[in-house]
Design a protein around this nucleic acid. Structure first.
Lengths: 145, 145
DNA sequence: TATATCCCCACTGGAACACTCGGCATTCGG
DNA sequence: CCGAATGCCGAGTGTTCCAGTGGGGATATA
């Protein structure tokens, strides 16, 4: 399960993508529109700003805009900076690798091997799906169910 | 990230699969062999027993054995009963569906749509990989990286 | 009967989650 | 230049979850 915070972050970003081009949205606007607690959203957007995904203007008529184009922001990127590693095991994480303390040899660890396949499959979706893809309802050829 | 508990459960089960056929392993044996805290392992195995995955014998020379054949126990099954739903959003879970309180329409939710693809990809691996597969080091044709 | 094993319940310390509060800094309209 | 509206920032809080630990009871074997 992804965190509520990550869900809020993605919804806020989707709202920004859908906004008329070059116009900005205020925290309170996004908060109302998406039913996200205002103060919580505030710190989420701040975090996205620190990571260079959005920018803001203060004061009257302030608000937020995307800093990077929507087709350059992936779900994986957002998820990693809000929730941390995507990999289901620390020994499979790109951004926060840590060997399992109790695992003697990663090469022969049966569990790791299985979850490695999970990780690849997950990354394949999250690192190649952008906000632009999401709002375009672009359906990639689905894998067999 | 899967929980430590789930990791322990899978390691314990792998140990049982690898044990000489029809022979049982004691908690203390698995605990030592796999470096799992004994009392914690105790309640994990108990949980696996309640769900019909292993069975036990008490008293001197007691221990645990697999109840179902190794090729009928999937990673998904074990993970769900220890960690709960696999899906990254409650509105995508098979075993614990709950609609997102703030989402007006699931059909048009951009976030849900993306994570649905993640869910399918994940389930595809976890629900079709068994303990037998894991110990056999059976390499299925890998998806492109 | 003594001992080794599994069974069961309760508890706990720490971390993470999902917020909330209060106040400061900046910008714009008038 | 003032005041109101906005974003910025640090701290705090209640709840839940995680990862165990402890103490005893039931059961089977030597």
């Amino acid at each position: 399960m992804i965190s509520q915070k990550a869900k809020y972050a993605l919804r806020a970003l989707v709202a920004l993508v859908k906004a008329p081009p070059e116009s900005s949205l205020m925290i309170s606007e996004i908060s109302r529109q998406q039913a996200i607690p205002k103060k919580f959203l505030e710190q989420i957007l701040l975090e996205l700003k620190r990571h260079g995904i959005v920018m803001s203007r203060r004061g009257r008529l302030g608000g937020y805009v995307l800093l990077k184009p929507a087709d350059r922001i992936t779900f994986g990127e957002v998820l990693r900076l809000i929730d941390g590693p995507i990999a289901p095991l620390p020994c499979l994480s790109k951004i926060a690798y840590r060997r399992c303390s109790d695992c003697s040899d990663e090469g022969t660890c049966e569990i790791r091997h299985v979850f490695q396949r999970v990780t690849f499959a997950t990354r394949d979706v999250l690192d190649h799906t952008t906000l632009a893809d999401a709002v375009k309802h672009k359906r990639l050829p689905e894998l067999a169910d």
